[in-house]
Amino acid sequence: MKQFLITLLAIGILSGCDKEESAPNTQLEIAVLDAEGNGASNSEVNVYLSLASFLDQESPIANGLTDATGAITFYGLKPKQTYYIDVRRVNATNWISQITSPYIEEGMNTFSTVISENWYSNLSNAAGISWSPKYVFIDDVWYIYNDCFNDDQYLFKKNLKMSYRNHTKCSASDPDFYTGEWFGTANQVTIYSDLEGDTGLSFKLVESDPAYFLGELRINGGELLLVRFEKMGI
């Protein structure tokens, strides 16, 4: 009986802590700006507890749309922690801007971020976007890429996981499928597969768009080849 009472007291103390942490007076006011510095109205805002949830876009604890000035306020957040903020309006996101809130204290907290159409959200999303190398640029003319390349599929996910599927092999030793990771910047994308001994693939990101991107690859002999990758399923 004594042990049972101690257990109940412990549960009561923990429950009391949870109630205190709810802090209904804790607010987070978010200002969303576009690339020109104007308030980005009607932007979808999702608030996550962890970076993993942000990357996988799973279980937001709060969400809503910004008002005419590009602002939105969330109430009742737990203080003494940071949150991860995902913002999107059409093809513009804050993924290469500020995604982490300040350390939240009780009372009013403020946060601002900038959305833009960028390489990260052009090339990927939580479920993954598939790309195929469809055309090559040779002597100022675009040509359809060789059949054993133009049906390859590279899938890029927001959490930086990737997969590759080879539908038509150029040689018998080519892999049918592999997974790995991808990393990018505004002008470079690198792929690392999980295949043993693989040294990765890197290309200059010349241009990106929600429907295509241009990558400059160095092929055998050191020659640079400009390739147009197109989004699959559109």
Rank of each mutant, 00 (worst) to 15 (best):
L201G: 06
Q188R: 11
K161A: 12
S163G: 05
S173E: 15
E230D: 09
E207A: 06
L201A: 11
A186R: 12
E196A: 12
S202I: 00
G222F: 14
K231N: 04
Y192C: 10
T179H: 01
F229C: 02
S202N: 13
I191Y: 15
S193Q: 10
S208D: 09
D209G: 05
S163A: 14
I191N: 10
K204S: 03
M162H: 04
E223H: 02
L214T: 05
Y178F: 15
K169Y: 00
A211M: 13
L217W: 12
G222M: 06
I191Q: 06
V227Y: 09
C170H: 11
E230W: 05
S171M: 08
E196Y: 06
E196D: 14
T199I: 00
K161L: 08
G222L: 10
E216F: 03
F177C: 10
T190P: 04
L160H: 15
A211S: 10
G197A: 07
S171W: 07
G222S: 08
T168L: 10
S208Q: 02
Y212D: 06
G200V: 06
I219S: 14
K231S: 06
R218C: 04
G215F: 04
G221R: 01
S202G: 15
E216T: 14
L225W: 07
A172L: 14
N220T: 05
A211N: 02
E230H: 01
N166D: 00
S208Y: 04
G215N: 05
Y178C: 15
E196W: 05
L217G: 03
F183P: 00
S163E: 10
D209M: 01
Y178M: 06
L214K: 14
C170G: 01
L224G: 06
D194W: 09
D198F: 09
S202H: 08
G221M: 00
L205A: 01
V189H: 07
T185M: 07
M162N: 09
E230K: 07
K231A: 12
K204F: 04
Y192P: 00
T168G: 01
Y192Q: 09
L160P: 02
Q188N: 13
I219T: 14
L205V: 11
N187T: 15
E181K: 14
G221A: 06
F177R: 00
G221Y: 10
K169C: 00
R165V: 14
G184V: 03
D209F: 13
A172W: 10
L224P: 09
G197N: 11
F213K: 08
T185P: 14
P210C: 13
S173R: 15
V189R: 04
E223T: 09
P210D: 11
T185A: 11
S208R: 04
L201F: 07
G221E: 01
E223A: 06
L226C: 07
G215Q: 07
V206T: 04
G184Q: 02
V206I: 04
F183T: 10
G222D: 01
